[in-house]
Design a protein around this nucleic acid. Sequence first.
DNA 1: TGTTTTTCATATGTCTGACAATTAGGATTT
DNA 2: AAATCCTAATTGTCAGACATATGAAAAACA
Lengths: 244, 244
Amino acid sequence: MKNTPANSSTDLSARIAHSLRDAILDGSLIVGDRLPSESDLSEQFSVSRSTVREALKRLAAQNLIRTQRGATGGAFVNHLSYAEAHNQQITTSTLLLSMNAISFDTACEARYALERACAPLAARRRTAGQLDILRAEITRQGQPDLTDEAFCASDVAFHRALVDAAGNPVLSYQLAGAVEAMQPLMNMITFTARSRVQIIALHGQIADALERSDAAGTDAALVGLENYTRDLARTVLAARAAAL
Amino acid sequence: MKNTPANSSTDLSARIAHSLRDAILDGSLIVGDRLPSESDLSEQFSVSRSTVREALKRLAAQNLIRTQRGATGGAFVNHLSYAEAHNQQITTSTLLLSMNAISFDTACEARYALERACAPLAARRRTAGQLDILRAEITRQGQPDLTDEAFCASDVAFHRALVDAAGNPVLSYQLAGAVEAMQPLMNMITFTARSRVQIIALHGQIADALERSDAAGTDAALVGLENYTRDLARTVLAARAAAL
DNA sequence: TGTTTTTCATATGTCTGACAATTAGGATTT
DNA sequence: AAATCCTAATTGTCAGACATATGAAAAACA
């Protein structure tokens, strides 16, 4: 991992942040450890306290450390939880998608490829509780007075539950991030009442297949959902293009 | 996305960073835009320049902005490239795995589930150039004087090329990050000369199947590699436990 | 006129020193 | 013994200064 430029041309605060980050990544500093105080660090690196502080803020922005005031305070190596990592990934992925003009087809293909990857595991391991969550979301999606935003939120929750059913936290972290980041792109095509019925039906197929522990059926239903989604997107985009 | 606490209790610099971050994420500030100067921002937010600077460093740490000195300098909304997003994801995933005591089986399962997800696409779309890369890495892996580190690096390159062959940049970004983050865990079991032969053979099977555009064959070879890897890990871990 | 050099305004980067706010633990008093 | 106060340590914020980089305008020159 030659992830460490540390050019002499870059900012002091960036270099110091890099140096401390490496110490955390390679295990010199482990979770819970307290970093030296800002004054100590400024002596060690021969820079002012402001520069040290800027470096520490960089680390804090990456959730690598947290700071505490007071007599026994300081900067502590943070325990990176799944939730925090998840949030970071969503931010990064959202930004990446919005800034790189990803086509809907590309995003959709990636999303369903990933989701299908955990379908066999989910079919094998889904618990009764996870099935209940899926059913509950489907029920919610069927309520006619549901706003578009709420429908989309429920859609995300459904797919997240599906991923969680695979029983692998690493997969959940990777996939849920991807699914949520792509949701804004997905939303534009589910914003029609007509498509809800079809989507709900496909969600039902997925839940049914999972209940039967039917991996092939789950996969088929996901493929169905993917095809339907892509067809719908094609139609929507064509209509939008024609309107101009 | 209710990702915005903005508690009045948190640091000023954190709140300002959050506020600017939201402006970037929701499109008020778009790529290439110049933020107001530090002095202007300090007036707008009624804080000192140091506080503004700490906020800006937080954003810079997330690759959201870049700064430039000089007359026409300032802080500019950054274009988040795949490479940068990729690096960030590797850092986050590596940290997450190292801090949360992920079992080898869990990591392995996730990795191959993701990798198998892009096998069908790769079988359909792989180019001759991508096949060449795969073959070249296999050749390198067969050189007897290769260090363990170099072998592992080549292994990563092979799998990355495999993922890239799917021809979907979103998948590449997601998967390559996952594969590389898990590599430290994977390495410990490929550090024996004996296992190299078997791994190279399986890599060969994958390349052959891709050359034939044989999705099922690629998948089967990947399953073979996964099973072999997990068996090997079980053996290594059992031996290590017995030695204590 | 065209080109090079100089100057200058503006911006970020760094330093210094100060004070505020918070907090744990010790000292003091009740 | 318990409650209170005090103190030292540490981060958070501020103000002002100087260093450094850089593009653009102004000046000098050919």
